[in-house]
Simulated assay, not measured.
Amino acid sequence: MACNWQPLIDLVARGRRFLLTTHVRPDGDGLGSMKAFAAGLRQQGKEVALIIPSSTLPGRYDFLDPDKEFTPFALSMEQQRQADTIVVLDTGTWNQLADMADFVRQSPAQKAVIDHHLTQDDLGAIRFVDTGAEATGRLVHEALVALGAKLTPDAATAIFVALAMDTGWFRHSNTTPRTFALAAELVSAGAQPPFLYEKLFERSSLGRLKLTGLVLGRLTLAENGRVAHSCIRKTDYSATGSIPPDSEDLVNWTLGIAGVEVGLLFMEQPAGGIKISFRSRGAVDVARLAQQFGGGGHAAAAGAISQGELEAVRDRVLAALAQVM
């Protein structure tokens, strides 16, 4: 459903110091949306802080942050204190805010959520949610238009990253003619696809490649070949010289096997718990499956974090999946 942006225009008019954030383990859609929306707010004369609920910015997105504006939550006390407006982008759930959740709950600042995910909690915010959008970046583009902001080359680049990453570089089923129309507008405004593809997909660290090898080596089939799953253990990062953000997109390898309809990747988290990434070719709604484990997302791509040992969590998820296959 298309968003009515007038409440956002009013919220922006009231605010002066904005704190923008996204979900834990931020991806291209979350970070690109933050960067582009910040550009629009600054055109309105607003002060903007970009805060991520993670300890580091994933290296694959460092080109989006030449001025080192993205700040880990733990290092942002002054920005937290000053903010009179909080905008959460690309998530609307408490668990995806991780350590930032309590701050958002307790802050007296006015709040807004801009998101395209089906699963939403009550964050005490005005919601701008369109589950038909292929990326939150599209909604940020709409918001910038509503605010009368100019689409600068930097903003166009950030939105292109958001759009490209959440459509799997325009190959997932959420890619539509409107996706390409928006991409064309962004390229006309200054986004450079060859440069962005190189930055996003052709700069893997040796550690990420070694981690990929472990994931591929552990691929296992279930449900007569219709399900593929693999796992990452906490010790794998030090063993391969990788870091947790290097696991982004590795779940997609599970769907690369002929006959597989659902793919799963189970990842032990450094702080405890098991992150589960779900992917589907469409026959199974993995967002509904993820909700059983405290998560959510889209019908074809979802996530959750569950407590317990990896093997026990894996067995519970596979049992739940077997019921809907």
Results as ranks from 00 to 15, higher is better:
164 A>I: 11
114 I>L: 12
209 L>W: 01
271 A>E: 15
114 I>H: 08
145 V>W: 00
120 Q>M: 12
192 Q>E: 15
145 V>T: 14
73 F>C: 01
315 D>Y: 00
35 K>D: 14
140 V>H: 08
100 M>K: 00
225 G>H: 05
58 P>A: 09
51 I>R: 07
35 K>G: 00
271 A>T: 11
10 D>E: 15
157 T>F: 10
176 T>G: 01
181 A>K: 13
313 V>Q: 06
289 L>N: 02
194 P>L: 13
50 L>C: 12
204 S>T: 04
218 R>Q: 10
239 A>P: 00
171 R>L: 00
146 A>E: 04
186 L>P: 02
135 A>F: 06
200 L>H: 04
83 A>D: 08
15 G>R: 08
16 R>T: 13
6 Q>M: 07
232 I>G: 09
268 E>M: 06
176 T>E: 12
322 A>M: 01
177 P>Q: 08
200 L>C: 10
160 F>D: 02
316 R>Q: 15
240 T>Q: 03
115 D>L: 01
218 R>P: 12
92 G>H: 07
241 G>I: 10
294 G>R: 06
63 F>K: 08
2 A>R: 15
36 A>S: 10
43 Q>L: 08
60 R>N: 03
24 V>K: 06
100 M>E: 04
215 V>T: 10
211 L>Y: 04
108 P>C: 02
298 H>Q: 10
61 Y>T: 03
238 S>C: 02
124 G>K: 05
67 D>A: 14
178 R>P: 00
165 M>G: 00
194 P>E: 13
182 L>G: 06
94 W>N: 02
107 S>N: 03
118 L>W: 10
80 Q>K: 14
319 A>S: 14
280 S>T: 05
42 R>N: 02
13 A>L: 06
116 H>I: 05
247 S>Q: 12
160 F>S: 01
116 H>K: 08
54 S>L: 03
67 D>H: 12
132 G>C: 01
78 E>D: 15
107 S>E: 05
176 T>M: 12
301 A>W: 11
241 G>T: 07
105 R>T: 01
271 A>S: 13
206 L>P: 03
110 Q>A: 13
203 R>K: 15
253 W>L: 14
243 I>H: 11
316 R>K: 15
298 H>C: 10
250 L>I: 10
216 L>D: 06
83 A>K: 05
309 E>K: 14
48 V>C: 04
128 F>M: 12
243 I>K: 10
203 R>C: 12
163 L>Q: 08
263 G>N: 06
313 V>G: 07
66 P>H: 03
82 Q>V: 11
173 S>L: 09
116 H>D: 09
131 T>S: 13
40 G>P: 08
225 G>M: 07
223 E>Y: 03
106 Q>Y: 00
294 G>E: 08
311 E>A: 15
96 Q>E: 12
7 P>A: 05
39 A>W: 09
228 A>Q: 07
115 D>Q: 03
217 G>C: 01
14 R>Q: 15
79 Q>V: 00
130 D>S: 04
321 L>S: 10
102 D>R: 12
54 S>T: 12
26 P>L: 06
63 F>H: 05
183 A>L: 09
261 E>R: 15
244 P>H: 09
172 H>V: 00
103 F>K: 02
219 L>V: 14
226 R>G: 05
146 A>W: 06
162 A>Y: 09
117 H>G: 07
156 A>E: 07
25 R>D: 11
317 V>Y: 05
296 G>F: 04
50 L>D: 02
78 E>L: 13
142 E>S: 09
213 G>K: 08
179 T>I: 09
